[in-house]
Design a protein around this nucleic acid. Structure first.
Lengths: 249, 249
DNA sequence: ACCCCGCATTAACATGGGTAAATCTTCGGG
DNA sequence: CCCGAAGATTTACCCATGTTAATGCGGGGT
């Protein structure tokens, strides 16, 4: 993977990291903590395996993460994709292990904050709690939309939905303009995300291409030409989806 | 729907409501609030439609809830099932609408607590926050396990997983003994939960029956005879699943 | 310039699960 | 006791998607 999610065609105005750090929700302590705990990872790094010991909180400063689960025979399902500015608590109900595998889809910089420190931050800055709650709500909302299509949708609607969801989220953090963005995933990854084989992802993308709804250029540069149609295929109401999925800052 | 989830074959020792109220996590204020806000609903009531205005928090005192999303053409996907003792925040990222439809699967008694009051409770009783966090972690964990099977599993493994998940959760709140419980759902409901048609649910259940893994008696009374095999079909490690999915109290 | 290698693309074929429709069972009501 | 409704079961048939495998293609290393 040769591309960096944050270098999306050079049309970004503000570094997402900067944006996150300077957002009104971030207190002074917060900024400092994020700075101190900041780490860089290259694309394809597995940060945490399912059920591995974990109590830390992850803040994505730049780059994309994939959360996944796998079956015994090695089939992977991507449960969610995490974008810059989002917060991740991978600790499961038992309080000390991770409920998902975490991996980087692109080069990424994260702040990994140990539990004790995170609690302290929460205590000093009440807005962090709100940010967390919103992040969780957004994530659940996204997951359920995907589950709906996983259970009841056609291949086309699953892919259309995924493309739209990512477009909305990227636009909100200014990493996409004009409904155009780079997807730091292979077709196999996209298939693992929407529950299709890579072959069928290819078929479906090509069909959308031929119909002029989207176009894909070298290794997953997406451009949505006809949002209306795409939204119709995905069976979504754009405005409603946006309000359910995007954290208000 | 003529059955009441909480009247599971008369083998319950403690009413779940009582259990919840008397759990060590519940403060005096909490108990009082739950008592005041308590409401009864009969089976099949739709409490909240998708995208409907909502800011309240729901505490399930007894009975089962289903959270669902639907496509435009009326196909329903059950996103999660909520059991007694669990807490539900249906408010989406925009802060004022619900991200799912909420309906009762059995007769149920709930405490519906308005946002302001809930915040106050959170402030007085720090353990509530912990309980909430655990509930959320458990719910995400469950959802991802289901997504994995929705995306990559066979019909058998989806159903086996659902049966095991519910068995573990019910056992934890003492609403099941000896791996035997009543499922207050039709086969159609179960299909909407695991992403299968009711016909195929039937086929699959009958196969599990014939193989002696489980037996189903009148209208969805489940009994798991051979957990090992069922767990194998579901591709789960029982102990790990339990620790990820069950809130520690 | 050449070779690899990982990924996308395409085609041919196989199948799990959906759909439709008929039949059976249970249960509540008159 | 009979009837009607709702759900479970079964059968026959069909199709969306998976699988396998061959082919193309672009980029990086030597």
């Amino acid at each position: 993977m040769h591309v960096e999610g944050t270098e999306n065609k050079g049309e970004r105005v503000l570094s997402p990291e900067l944006e996150f750090l300077t957002s009104p929700t971030a207190s002074c302590e917060m900024r400092q903590a994020l700075q101190t705990r900041k780490r860089e990872y290259c694309a394809g790094t597995i940060l945490k395996v399912e059920a591995e010991e974990n109590t830390a909180t992850y803040c994505v400063l730049s780059g994309w993460l994939a959360l996944s689960k796998s079956t015994i025979d090695g089939e992977r399902q991507i449960i969610d994709v995490i974008l810059p500015g989002e917060i991740l608590h991978p600790t499961s109900a038992d309080g000390h292990s991770s409920w998902i595998q975490i991996e980087t889809l692109s080069r990424a910089s994260l702040a990994v904050v140990p539990r004790a420190e995170w609690s302290k931050l929460e205590a000093t800055d009440p807005t962090i709690r709100k940010l967390e709650a919103t992040t969780i709500a957004a994530s659940m909302s996204r997951m359920s939309e995907r589950m709906l299509r996983l259970g009841k949708g056609t291949a086309e609607s699953r892919i259309a939905y995924a493309l739209i969801e990512l477009c909305l989220r990227l636009t909100a953090i200014r990493q996409s303009k004009n409904r155009e963005y780079h997807l730091p995933m292979t077709q196999k990854d996209l298939g693992d995300f929407v529950g299709l084989s890579s072959v069928h992802v290819c078929r479906t993308l090509r069909r959308l291409n031929r119909n002029g709804v989207i176009s894909t250029m070298d290794h997953m540069d997406i451009r949505i030409h006809d949002v209306e149609t795409l939204a119709h295929i995905a069976e979504v109401d754009l405005d409603r989806l946006r309000s359910e999925i995007i954290s208000v800052r």
